[in-house]
Design a protein around this nucleic acid. Structure first.
Lengths: 139, 139
DNA sequence: GAAAAATTGACAATTTCAGTCAAGTATTGT
DNA sequence: ACAATACTTGACTGAAATTGTCAATTTTTC
């Protein structure tokens, strides 16, 4: 039941980006340096975040990345889902593409896995990137 | 964010056990046959469930396994924790043995991972083995 | 035009998962 | 007694996922 580094790194990188993007694009190298994450690995994470329209990549000499939306309107759940895929505890509860298992009719546990994944989603969606940034600057 | 087969199989096996243990011990072979799970794999899962005092192994000729408690007093969360270890989304939030990360002081995400794991635990602990058995016999 | 930086795909080391196999111990039915 | 049954436990293995690395390419700016 661990969250992979993809999810954890992505959230940290997004907080970092939100805190430093006030004046122009932030490069991977800067974020990687501050956060202690491999710049090459960040490239892959940001590729997915971009596909999810959460950030925007700026090419060229003084390029980098920018948030695509106001931090107050980016939910942490969106970030995690973007890099880790839909929140589901089992293959048979992946929203949209539920794999039909032959035991489905008799299966009494599926509803519980579904409910649990929803609890996770609600928790992560109840916090915005702006919330985390506020905490970071407070301390 | 998937639950491993350990947790899923363990819950199914426990439901099966609860439904069939009225008259004496149930063998691995019986549960394995009904649930389509390898009997050898069940041995390992049940070993952990036994260590957690959720079931009791009965050796010898007509042996098998029995529930150690009333199904109404066995929470699904206990089963999952027994086979998968404590619910934590990160190493730095494993209860008891938090690995101290050098960024802990500046880390703004830890509290969120903690809160999320608690939401999972609460959801799984809100359902008992008896609840699942009732559903299974209803349909 | 050279340097900086994102974009993208291929690849590899490591770890975890899922399950098998086998040797050993305990108990029971006959 | 003893053979059959069934739990107990550890070692081991193949497959898959994770966690990156590396390199080639494209875009933009100074």
């Amino acid at each position: 039941m661990r969250l992979s580094t993809k999810g954890r790194y992505a959230v940290r990188a997004m907080v970092d980006l939100a805190l430093h993007a006030h004046e122009g694009p932030v490069s991977r190298a800067e974020i990687a340096g501050r956060q202690g994450i491999s710049a090459d690995y960040i490239a892959h994470l940001f590729h997915r975040l971009q596909r999810a329209k959460l950030i925007r990549g700026v090419r060229g000499r003084s390029g980098g990345y920018l948030l695509a939306r106001d931090p107050a309107h980016i939910r942490i759940g969106e970030i995690v889902r973007a890099v880790e895929g839909p929140m589901a505890l089992t293959d048979c509860t992946v929203p949209g593409q539920e794999t039909v298992c032959p035991r489905a009719s008799r299966c009494v546990t599926r509803a519980l896995w579904l409910k649990t994944a929803q609890a996770v989603a609600e928790t992560l969606d109840s916090v915005t990137l702006a919330d985390l940034c506020r905490q970071a600057t407070e301390s």
